[in-house]
């Protein structure tokens, strides 16, 4: 059962504590939420590749262990690549945190009922996959704790925020994948000095 927790204020409040964290957003609403909270080069927006936000965040976390990496995604996206939780647990990156915005629906495609509206519990699956630090948030007064959970402790860790099914105003970031990737990569590595990628 979902109460009135709304995605945009939740994401904005959590990201207020991000520091220099790198953020990878899943396609659709998590990407719009990330952009709406404030555009930064350290944001990786995705418009496709459903199921790949978490593997992408994992590869990034392994490559830059000194930076906190946050993956923000939705229930439908993470369910498509649910096995990735086992991959994350086995790699055990201490700098990786995952925030699942769970509205129990395929919000982008007509608000069809999702699997987590039934008996499926993503935090429990994460724990079973071997991610021992999990948290489920259902109310606005837990959001400060959520930010601490995501940014202030050793990973890997996963939080599920049970959010209301809402229709937010469009907040569409850059769409060109090469532009998004280049800006993000240069934010981490600086401008390229050679032709070697």
């Amino acid at each position: 059962m979902i109460d009135s927790l709304e995605r945009r204020p939740l994401v904005a409040e959590v990201l207020g504590e991000r520091g220099d964290a790198l953020v990878v957003a899943g396609l659709g609403s998590p990407t719009w939420d990330l952009f709406a909270a404030g555009d930064r080069p350290e944001n990786l927006y995705t418009w496709g590749g459903m199921g790949l936000a978490l593997p992408t965040a994992l590869g990034l976390a392994l490559a830059v262990p000194e930076r906190r990496v946050l993956c923000i995604t939705g229930d439908g996206e993470i369910m498509m690549g649910i096995g990735s939780l086992a991959v994350v647990a086995n790699q055990a990156p201490e700098n990786l945190a995952i925030l699942v915005l769970d509205n129990e629906s395929f919000g982008e495609t007509g608000q069809q009922r999702g699997l987590t509206a039934g008996p499926t519990d993503i935090a429990a699956i994460a724990a079973g996959a071997g991610i021992s630090a999990t948290m489920t948030v259902r109310a606005g007064n837990q959001v400060a704790d959520l930010a601490q959970f995501l940014f202030a402790a050793v990973g890997p860790r996963l939080a599920v925020a049970k959010i209301a099914l809402t229709e937010e105003p469009w907040a569409l970031p850059e769409k060109d994948g090469a532009t998004i990737a280049r800006r993000f990569r240069e934010a981490i590595m600086g401008a390229p000095r050679t032709t070697d990628r």
Binding site: V24, P55, L58, G59, L62, G81, V87, Q91, M189
Partner: peptide, 23 residues
């Protein structure tokens, strides 16, 4: 580092993420 996957498309994401981080 060997990253054992559950399914191969995860590897596409892992490789892109690693490249974004310079690896």
């Amino acid at each position: 580092r060997v990253v054992t996957l559950t399914t191969e498309p995860e590897g596409v994401g892992v490789c892109i993420g690693a490249w974004l981080g310079g690896k």
